[in-house]
Amino acid sequence: MAEIETQAAPLGVLINNAGFHEDALLANMQQDQWSRVLDANLNAVFHGCQAVLPGMMRQRQGRVVNIASLSAISSPAGQTNYAAAKAGVIGLTQSLAKESARMGITVNAICPGYIEGGLPADWTPEHLKALKMQLPMRRFARPEEIAAAVFFLASPDASYITGSTLKIDGGLL
């Protein structure tokens, strides 16, 4: 972190986007399936925030956008690990927002629904077609439709928005 900040400018925006899911029913879930998903989706957000916060505090300015998931709210079967991790991201977001509001730092979360190109590779075209039929817009989100919200939350226009969770799911939930 120190190396990045001395070689480039201090970090002004952190987007915690990395994540993956590894679905299994809890009855069958291995301890390492639980741990890997919690590490990647929740613990990584903690470490990312902790790394950038001192610099943002010194600048008294910063933007954190955490990519949670619709699963944090809908909690589907087979995702006890992922749903718990992503719900944890929302909790972290709200708590950290309160801790850092006075320092000019905002912390928000986004819960995307189904995204084009982001769906499991083993889902068949028939399955995707059937899934789309159930969506209010009958289509998946384009990645840029999520990116636009990230961009907005990271912009000066969003200066009074903090601790918020924005669901972007085309009206699914």
Binding site: P54, M57, R58, K98, E99, S100, R102, M103
Partner: peptide, 13 residues
């Protein structure tokens, strides 16, 4: 406690 953290940073800065 949030102010305390800020004071520590402020005094150092």
């Amino acid at each position: 406690s949030v102010d305390a953290l800020q004071l520590v940073v402020m005094i150092e800065k």
